[in-house]
Measured scan of single mutants.
Amino acid sequence: DAPDEFRDPLMDTLMTDPVRLPSGTIMDRSIILRHLLNSPTDPFNRQTLTESMLEPVPELKEQIQAWMR
């Protein structure tokens, strides 16, 4: 099983494109984008959230890719 820090906190699946929300939570980009289609909010604190506020986490993405090899 993947380490917890590699798993999306909402869907508990392996992240492939991790992004940091303004709240500091790291999620998979595809999952948070799907959530934003229904509700333009951070799913953990209900603060306003837009796609432009998502910050890529390239170092975590590299760690996940290395773990998958």
Score class of each variant (00 low, 15 high):
Asp1Asn: 14
Asp1Thr: 14
Asp1Lys: 15
Asp1Trp: 14
Ala2Glu: 07
Ala2Val: 15
Ala2Met: 14
Pro3Met: 05
Pro3Ala: 05
Pro3Leu: 05
Pro3Trp: 05
Asp4Leu: 15
Asp4Asn: 14
Asp4Val: 15
Glu5Asp: 10
Glu5Ala: 13
Glu5Thr: 11
Glu5Val: 11
Glu5Ile: 13
Glu5Trp: 14
Glu5Leu: 12
Phe6Glu: 01
Phe6Gly: 02
Phe6Asn: 01
Phe6Leu: 06
Phe6Val: 02
Phe6Lys: 02
Arg7Thr: 07
Arg7Lys: 13
Arg7Glu: 02
Arg7Tyr: 12
Asp8Pro: 03
Asp8Leu: 04
Asp8Ser: 03
Asp8Gln: 02
Pro9Ser: 07
Pro9Glu: 04
Pro9Tyr: 06
Pro9His: 06
Pro9Leu: 05
Pro9Thr: 04
Leu10Lys: 05
Leu10His: 05
Leu10Glu: 04
Leu10Asp: 02
Leu10Arg: 04
Asp12Glu: 09
Asp12Ala: 12
Thr13Ala: 06
Thr13Gly: 06
Thr13Trp: 08
Thr13Phe: 07
Leu14Phe: 08
Leu14Asp: 02
Met15Thr: 01
Met15Ile: 08
Met15Glu: 00
Met15Ser: 01
Met15Arg: 00
Thr16Gly: 07
Thr16Leu: 14
Thr16Ile: 14
Thr16Asp: 09
Asp17Ser: 04
Asp17Leu: 04
Asp17Val: 04
Pro18Glu: 00
Pro18Trp: 05
Val19Asn: 01
Val19Cys: 06
Val19Phe: 04
Val19Met: 10
Arg20Phe: 04
Arg20Pro: 01
Leu21Ala: 00
Leu21Lys: 00
Leu21Tyr: 00
Leu21Thr: 04
Pro22Ile: 04
Pro22Met: 03
Pro22Asn: 01
Pro22Asp: 01
Pro22Lys: 03
Ser23Val: 01
Ser23Tyr: 04
Ser23Leu: 02
Ser23Trp: 06
Ser23Arg: 03
Gly24Leu: 04
Gly24Trp: 04
Thr25Phe: 15
Thr25Gln: 12
Ile26Tyr: 04
Met27Ile: 07
Met27His: 04
Met27Tyr: 05
Met27Asp: 01
Asp28Lys: 01
Asp28Tyr: 04
Asp28Asn: 05
Asp28Phe: 11
Asp28Thr: 02
Asp28Ile: 09
Arg29Lys: 12
Arg29Leu: 10
Arg29Cys: 07
Arg29Phe: 08
Arg29Asn: 04
Arg29Tyr: 08
Ser30Cys: 13
Ser30Asp: 11
Ser30Gly: 10
Ser30Ala: 14
Ser30Thr: 12
Ser30His: 13
Ile31Tyr: 07
Ile31Gln: 06
Ile32Thr: 00
Ile32Pro: 01
Leu33Lys: 08
Leu33Phe: 06
Leu33Gln: 08
Arg34Trp: 12
Arg34Lys: 13
Arg34Phe: 11
Arg34His: 10
His35Val: 08
His35Ile: 09
His35Phe: 12
His35Met: 12
Leu36Asp: 01
Leu36Lys: 00
Leu36Ser: 00
Leu36Arg: 00
Leu36Gln: 00
Leu36Asn: 00
Leu37Trp: 10
Leu37Met: 14
Asn38Gly: 11
Asn38Pro: 00
Asn38Ser: 14
Asn38Arg: 13
Ser39Pro: 01
Ser39Ala: 08
Ser39Cys: 10
Ser39Tyr: 10
Ser39Gln: 09
Ser39Phe: 10
Pro40Gly: 11
Pro40Val: 07
Thr41Ala: 07
Thr41His: 09
Thr41Val: 09
Asp42Thr: 03
Asp42Arg: 06
Asp42Tyr: 04
Asp42Asn: 06
Asp42Glu: 07
Pro43Met: 03
Pro43Ile: 02
Pro43Val: 03
Pro43Phe: 03
Pro43Asn: 02
Phe44Val: 05
Asn45Cys: 08
Asn45Val: 06
Asn45Leu: 07
Asn45Phe: 07
Asn45His: 07
Arg46Ala: 13
Arg46Met: 14
Arg46Pro: 06
Gln47Trp: 10
Gln47Asp: 12
Gln47Cys: 11
Thr48Glu: 13
Thr48Met: 14
Thr48Val: 13
Thr48His: 15
Leu49Tyr: 02
Leu49Pro: 00
Leu49Asp: 01
Leu49Cys: 06
Thr50Cys: 09
Thr50Pro: 02
Thr50His: 13
Thr50Gln: 09
Thr50Leu: 10
Thr50Arg: 09
Glu51Asp: 08
Glu51Thr: 09
Ser52Cys: 10
Ser52Glu: 14
Ser52Tyr: 12
Met53Asn: 07
Met53Ile: 05
Met53Gly: 05
Met53Asp: 12
Met53Phe: 04
Met53Tyr: 04
Met53Ser: 06
Leu54Asn: 00
Leu54Ala: 02
Leu54Cys: 05
Glu55Val: 15
Glu55Ser: 10
Glu55Arg: 12
Glu55Asn: 08
Glu55Ile: 15
Glu55Asp: 09
Pro56Thr: 08
Pro56Cys: 08
Pro56Tyr: 08
Val57Met: 15
Val57Asp: 07
Pro58Asp: 09
Pro58Thr: 10
Pro58Trp: 09
Pro58Gly: 08
Pro58Phe: 09
Pro58Ile: 09
Glu59Phe: 11
Glu59Trp: 15
Glu59Ala: 11
Glu59Ile: 10
Glu59Cys: 10
Glu59Leu: 11
Leu60Ser: 01
Leu60Gly: 01
Leu60Lys: 01
Lys61His: 07
Lys61Thr: 07
Lys61Tyr: 11
Lys61Gly: 06
Glu62Ile: 11
Glu62Phe: 11
Gln63Tyr: 08
Gln63Ile: 11
Gln63Trp: 09
Ile64His: 00
Ile64Arg: 00
Ile64Cys: 06
Gln65Tyr: 13
Gln65Val: 12
Gln65Ala: 13
Ala66His: 11
Ala66Asn: 13
Met68Val: 12
Met68Ile: 14
Met68Leu: 15
Met68Gln: 10
Met68Lys: 08
Met68Asp: 07
Met68Thr: 08
Arg69Phe: 11
Arg69Glu: 14
Arg69Val: 12
Arg69Ser: 13
Arg69Asp: 12
Arg69Trp: 11
